[in-house]
């Protein structure tokens, strides 16, 4: 196993593409910092309070989660697929390595490389912030734990990509599937985070919505089974079983940046799972946003959770998915005559 890990890492070391990707990922956050600096120049520099700095630091370093799964969706199937295309994997089998060793070393090496890409991005982000007008605020190091949660999720996707190429072998199919996966992740992320409420939470939300509507003189009632309010049937299982909602919960978009400068968004100790209110009602109901966040917090159990709890949930899901991808992949790889 150690021999094969050395082999895989030596291959990565010898691959120019792997170095180019690492270099690009390390330099990429510089662009984010430049954009932020421009925003600040356009706005008012006096507004860079420690909280704003904290938020912007997070905005820069968390953005790897958008890029790494995308880049690895292309790189891993091509790089690992070469073992099959050129047939070197047969040398591993005939040398006497077990299929488990071959499979595990391929998965571990790509997982480590993915973690390295994430680390490169985070380091690049911190270093470029140091030379920017925005002071680095890592919230006493807590921010790095959040980054690790994102990294573990990115690693889980890399395990999936490696598994796909190890069991499918055909070079094009794993690339297509990996790219489709990463593309669907954003769509699923919207669905999962927008409808993260379970049935109990929907009922609680429904009650408070109807009560508030009546108090405000609206005749309508919240229709739980209305066309635009049933998304949680699909969204909630996605939310429970995958990390799809992580992007929306943990990360912020460039529009958040503007909101933050205006004091509307902040780097919170709490994670809001209240997109049900903001997305479902706001977008589709004429009586949007009639229930305030405070009321939701009071009447809907679990609409807000601590960051620690969210991290624990996401990390556990990442580990479970890694085990599922690895276990299922190895079960096929072990049996399949693919050499």
């Amino acid at each position: 196993m150690i021999q094969l890990l050395k082999f895989e890492f030596y291959r990565l070391l010898k691959s120019k593409i792997s170095w180019i990707i690492l270099a690009v990922m390390t330099v990429l956050p510089v662009l984010a910092v430049i954009v932020i600096s421009l925003f600040i120049k356009l706005g008012n520099e006096d507004r860079i309070t420690p909280d704003v700095a904290k938020f912007m630091t997070w905005l820069v370093i968390s953005y790897f989660y958008k890029w790494v799964p995308m880049v690895t969706a292309l790189f891993i199937p091509i790089f690992t697929g070469r073992n099959f295309r050129d047939g070197f994997i047969r040398n591993m089998i005939t040398a006497g390595h077990t299929r488990f060793q071959i499979f595990a070393s391929a998965v571990i090496s790509k997982a480590v490389y993915t973690a390295l890409l994430c680390t490169g991005y985070v380091l690049g982000g911190i270093l470029s912030l140091l030379v920017s007008p925005v002071p680095v605020n890592l919230n006493g190091g807590e921010m790095l734990l959040r980054a690790l949660t994102l990294m573990l999720s990115a690693v889980a996707t890399s395990v999936l990509y490696t598994t796909l190429v190890m069991v499918i072998r055909n070079k094009a199919v794993p690339i297509i599937l990996s790219v489709l996966f990463v593309m669907s992740f954003t769509v699923c992320g919207l669905l999962a985070s927008s409808f993260s409420y379970n049935h109990k939470m929907v009922r609680q939300y429904s009650k408070i919505w109807t009560k508030t509507a009546r108090e405000n003189g609206f005749a309508s009632e919240f229709d739980e089974d209305g066309y635009f309010n049933v998304g949680w049937y699909a969204g909630h299982p996605l939310f429970v079983f995958t990390n799809a909602s992580m992007e929306n919960e943990f990360m912020f978009t460039s529009s958040s940046l503007v909101s933050d400068i205006n004091g509307a968004t902040s780097y919170s100790d709490e994670i809001s799972r209240n997109n049900f209110n903001s997305v479902s009602s706001y977008l589709f109901s004429k009586n949007a946003g009639i229930v305030g966040n405070e009321a939701i917090k009071k009447h809907v159990d679990g609409a807000y959770v601590s960051v620690e709890r969210a991290e624990l949930e996401y990390n556990m899901k990442s580990v479970v998915w890694i085990m599922i991808y690895f276990g299922a992949g190895y079960a096929i790889f072990r049996k399949k005559n693919i050499f």
């Binding site: 150690i2 021999q3 050395k6 082999f7 030596y10 050129d86 070197f88 040398n91 040398a95």
Partner: peptide
């Protein structure tokens, strides 16, 4: 032959050396 097409002969041998520990 099970060889990496994008590597030299010497590098291919090096990979086999690593493969065999």
């Amino acid at each position: 032959p099970s060889i990496y097409a994008n590597q030299s002969a010497e590098d291919n041998l090096k990979f086999q050396y690593l493969n065999l520990g």
